[in-house]
Computed example of a mutant assay.
Amino acid sequence: MASITLVVRPRGRPIKNLPESITVNPDESVTQVFTKIADASKFSIHRLRVTKGSDGTPLSNNRDITVQQTGLRNKSAIDVKDLGPQISWRTVFIVEYLGPLLIHPLVYYGRSLIYRSSAPPSYLQTLTMLLCVIHFAKREFETIFIHRFSAATMPARNIFKNSAHYWFLSGLNLAYWSYAPSSPAARSSPNLLIAYLGVAIFAIGELGNFYTHVVLKNLRRPGSQDRGIPQGFGFRLVTCPNYMFEIISWIGVALVNFSLSTVLFIAISGLQMVAWAKKKERRYRKEFPETYKKKRFVILPGII
Rank of each mutant, 00 (worst) to 15 (best):
Met129Leu: 05
Leu172Tyr: 11
Thr126Gln: 10
Arg221Leu: 15
Ala185Leu: 01
Leu193Ser: 09
Tyr166Ala: 01
Gly234Asp: 08
Leu207Glu: 01
Leu169Ala: 05
Glu142Leu: 07
Leu216Cys: 03
Ser117Asp: 14
His147Trp: 04
Gly234Ala: 08
Pro121Gln: 06
Pro121Leu: 03
Glu206Asp: 09
Lys217Ala: 10
Ala152Gly: 00
Glu140Met: 05
Arg139Thr: 03
Val238Thr: 08
Leu216Glu: 02
Phe210Ile: 10
Ala186Phe: 04
Ile204Met: 14
Phe160Gln: 00
Pro230Arg: 10
Phe235Gln: 03
Tyr243Asn: 07
Ala186Asn: 13
Ser183Thr: 05
Thr212Phe: 05
Ile229Gln: 02
Tyr123Lys: 11
Ser163Glu: 04
Arg116Asn: 15
Met129Arg: 08
Phe168Ile: 15
Phe202Trp: 14
Arg116Met: 11
Arg227Phe: 11
Pro241Asn: 11
Ser224Thr: 15
Ala156Ile: 07
Ala203Gln: 03
Gly232Leu: 00
Lys217Phe: 05
Tyr243Trp: 09
Asn218Lys: 15
Leu216Ile: 12
Ile144Tyr: 03
Gly228Asp: 11
Ser224Gly: 06
Ala185Tyr: 09
Arg227Pro: 02
Tyr179Ile: 01
Phe202Met: 03
Ile201Asn: 04
Phe136Met: 06
Ala164Tyr: 11
Lys138Gln: 05
Ala180Ile: 03
Arg116Val: 04
Pro241Asp: 03
Gly234Leu: 10
Leu131Val: 01
Ser182Arg: 06
Gly232Ser: 04
Pro241Phe: 13
Gly228Phe: 06
Ala175Leu: 13
Ser118Glu: 14
Pro190Lys: 13
Val238Asn: 07
Val215Tyr: 00
Asn242Trp: 07
Trp177Gln: 11
Ser182Trp: 12
Ser224Ala: 13
Ala151Gly: 07
Leu172Phe: 15
Arg227Leu: 14
Ala186His: 13
Leu193Phe: 12
His135Asp: 02
Cys240Tyr: 12
Tyr179Trp: 08
Leu207Ser: 05
Ile134Met: 12
Gly232Thr: 03
Ala119Tyr: 03
Lys138Trp: 06
Tyr196Phe: 15
Asp226Lys: 14
Thr153Glu: 14
Tyr211Trp: 02
Arg236Asn: 14
Thr126Pro: 01
Arg157Ile: 10
Gly228Cys: 01
Thr143Cys: 10
Arg139Trp: 05
Val214Leu: 15
Met244Gly: 02
Thr143Lys: 02
Phe168Asn: 07
Arg157Tyr: 15
Val214Ser: 06
His147Gly: 02
Ala175Trp: 09
Ser189Gly: 00
Arg187Gln: 13
Gln231Ile: 13
Pro230Ile: 06
Ser117Asn: 14
Ile194His: 02
Phe235Lys: 07
Leu197Tyr: 07
Ser118Val: 09
Ala175His: 01
His213Gly: 04
Gly205Ala: 06
Asn158Met: 13
Leu127Gln: 04
Thr239Phe: 02
Asn242Phe: 03
Pro230Gln: 12
Thr212His: 05
Ile229Asn: 02
His213Ala: 09
